[in-house]
Design a protein around this nucleic acid. Sequence first.
DNA 1: TCGAATTTGTGCGTATGTATC
DNA 2: GGATACATACGCACAAATTCG
Lengths: 247, 247
Amino acid sequence: MTQPAYLRIADELRRQIVDGRLGPGDRVPSRHQLARDHGVSDRVAVEAVRLLVSEGYVESRSGSGTYVRQRPTVKRLTRSWYRAHGRADSPFRADMEAQGRAGTWRSSSETSTATPAVAERLGVAEGDPVMRTRYTFLADEQPVMLSTSWEPLALTRGTPVMLPESGPYAGAGVVARMRAIEQTVTLASEIVTARAILADEADELGEPMGAIVMVIQRTYSGDHPVETADIVVPVDRYELEYVIPVD
Amino acid sequence: MTQPAYLRIADELRRQIVDGRLGPGDRVPSRHQLARDHGVSDRVAVEAVRLLVSEGYVESRSGSGTYVRQRPTVKRLTRSWYRAHGRADSPFRADMEAQGRAGTWRSSSETSTATPAVAERLGVAEGDPVMRTRYTFLADEQPVMLSTSWEPLALTRGTPVMLPESGPYAGAGVVARMRAIEQTVTLASEIVTARAILADEADELGEPMGAIVMVIQRTYSGDHPVETADIVVPVDRYELEYVIPVD
DNA sequence: TCGAATTTGTGCGTATGTATC
DNA sequence: GGATACATACGCACAAATTCG
């Protein structure tokens, strides 16, 4: 039994990419080219290219061509027990500074009600009022990470920290903000999963469809949960490092 | 502009799956059915189904049909600072017991030499001798997790713990074994990434191609690294929980 | 045990629309 | 506007796996 033609062609291109004969940004031969070069039909070349797209090697721009993807260098996000030690700064900005990059973000907040999942994570009743804040994190002006955070309004309503990103504690991070209203955070729980990227996330992060993201469900708590967030991290931009003391 | 037909069809099926009209194990209409029902060609139905397969909603069995995937219930692996507190047992068995499941494993060890990546993680020179052990972890007899571990032979050669899974400390876990040869482990670093499953992994874990796995690069160290491992965890079986004390 | 029907996987030639340069 | 390239679609063919009588 012989290899299907589309696999052979995909294989040859893949090899050229991994050993550098085709570098990031280079144009891959068009479907016509590939078909002619290998003596097969257009249709077969389509399948070959489609495979490489789904594997993340190349990216097709309609009307223009197919290009080898820029593989952004993978940076490491350290999420350890010694985070935020004595700093009054946001964890994200600190992470970016450690990499010599400018970390900023956009955000928008609105009041909302707790969905079943959020209610369980915050330990409140379904439908209870919460402040929902969506973040887009930028490294050197480029969106690199998304997050949606929920805080129980029962805790923050009427305090200076009700809006996470305005007032005296804007940008200070959850732990510092909660300390300002006498809520001591002692524990962060991060539940890590991964899934395929969603269309709107791909759009915002400039990732191709089919990319993989890790989702961190982070919950800060003291006597009870004070904030929970879904953090969406593309795997081709970041890896997560957890440092765990043993015994 | 109107939606492409194959997206419309995929969307309709996806909706039927998420709202339960098509339950796990149910058979999805065949290509012919779909094509006739939607008044399109065979080829279009193929594309629609292919998309759902790549998204993990359904699974095609050649010659038989296409079926809605069993979503195994997701279990949580807690990987926190208080792990292995006073226990002389393996972390995996403890995790499984916490879920009321029988945790066992198969393994095979062989001497090998350090690849560049492994050498860096272990802090040894490229080509140095290491003991490589491959694990297949089973929960209730079912393979659910894979791991490959490397230990520098410079540390363990000639000691009773040279082979991780035989001798007096078999199955005791890395920390206990290393303690037996005066190597105190104080830190575990876990670097989490995710990627598409590889063919041989899919085969062994009974996952379909296209499934997503998380890869944990775990390194145990005291004064220096004593063991490093790549742990492959399918996302539809497990989520990872890290608990982090704050300040 | 055998064979027919069904279903998926793959290959191919072609046509049309649309985005980009 | 024209040339190029990708996206989608149609129709047909055959191999391999599975099912079932």
